[in-house]
Amino acid sequence: MRHFDTDSLETLVTIVDRGGFTAAGEALGKTQAAVSVIVSRMEARIGKRLLERSRKGVTPTFAGEILIGYARRILSLEDEALAAIGGDEAAGRVRLAVPDDFVDMMVSPLIGAFSRRFPRVQLEMRCDLSFRLEPMLERGEVDLAIITQDPARPLGEVLRREPRAWCAARDHRPELIDPLPLAMFPEGCRCRPDALAALDAMGRPWRIAYTSSHMPGIHSAVNAGMAITILGISSIPKEWRRLGEEEGFPELPLLDIALVVPANASVATKRFATFLRETVLQQEALAA
């Protein structure tokens, strides 16, 4: 038989989204052993390894990435079919958790279209740093989350790999100050460590001149000329300057922006997740 069963596909997706076999089993109501058996059977049938296990967690192989992409689409179509047959129009509340530097680039473009398509869904948004949002999702305080992936414990599906840049206000030159003044998100922000390590590696003295948990605070400090900052390029205001190698600033690693959707998500939550994926794909197609 050449068919995949959706239970196995859901198990595979949940392992990747939850970061491991045990967490996936808890989300799906299965034992870790049962989850392992499902994956082993899929790998035996396909003849390729789908997941790599390590101390850092579970990551998909190249074949696994391909299958997971199809699996998400198959599961989404299954939900749509069941909703269409049962007349299950999406309704209720969707509580989205997202760092506020991702709101304009990923959330704002879709909420109007989503609300028109699903007028019975109430949207709520919680903004905070990713390391605080993940526990909220685990405790059931929010329904889905957009996060910056933790390289040591990658959760969810990667929506976008976002380039980052050093940036400053157009009419100020804080990059000429020594030590270099920085406006940063607080400790725990996943963008901080490699940026600070890059400055240390090049021997550039720095100091944290300003800290804020939210984007408006970072904007205020940079616009006042207090400091430079680091943002994803989609979040940099058009009137700011980007600082690169010519100004003596090192290139930074890409930022992995991921979507985490629980296995037991509501119909409305799944619809929002699908809208978000489609919006990101459309943005990438227009940028190509």
Rank of each mutant, 00 (worst) to 15 (best):
R49F: 06
Q122N: 09
A273F: 11
E157I: 03
R53S: 03
D88L: 08
I230K: 00
E245Q: 14
Q149W: 13
L286S: 05
L231E: 04
P186V: 07
T274Q: 15
I38D: 03
I233L: 09
L50M: 08
R45I: 00
R2A: 10
P154N: 11
A165Y: 05
K238W: 00
T229E: 00
K270I: 01
L129M: 11
D128H: 06
R41N: 14
R45E: 12
L133G: 00
S40T: 11
R73V: 05
G156H: 05
G19T: 06
E162Q: 15
E52L: 15
T211R: 06
T61C: 14
A258M: 08
S266A: 09
T61H: 14
R242M: 14
H172K: 10
L231H: 02
P109Q: 07
L286Q: 09
A34Q: 10
M215C: 00
P216H: 07
Q283V: 01
A97K: 11
L51C: 07
K48W: 05
L144F: 06
T211H: 02
E89M: 09
P253S: 11
I230L: 03
K30M: 15
G217C: 11
D256I: 09
K238S: 02
K30S: 03
A44C: 04
A197W: 08
L129S: 01
A169Q: 05
D104M: 04
Y210L: 10
V158Q: 12
G57N: 10
Y70K: 08
W206M: 08
G225P: 04
M125Q: 12
R204E: 06
V94K: 06
R73N: 01
V267I: 14
K56Y: 06
I85S: 04
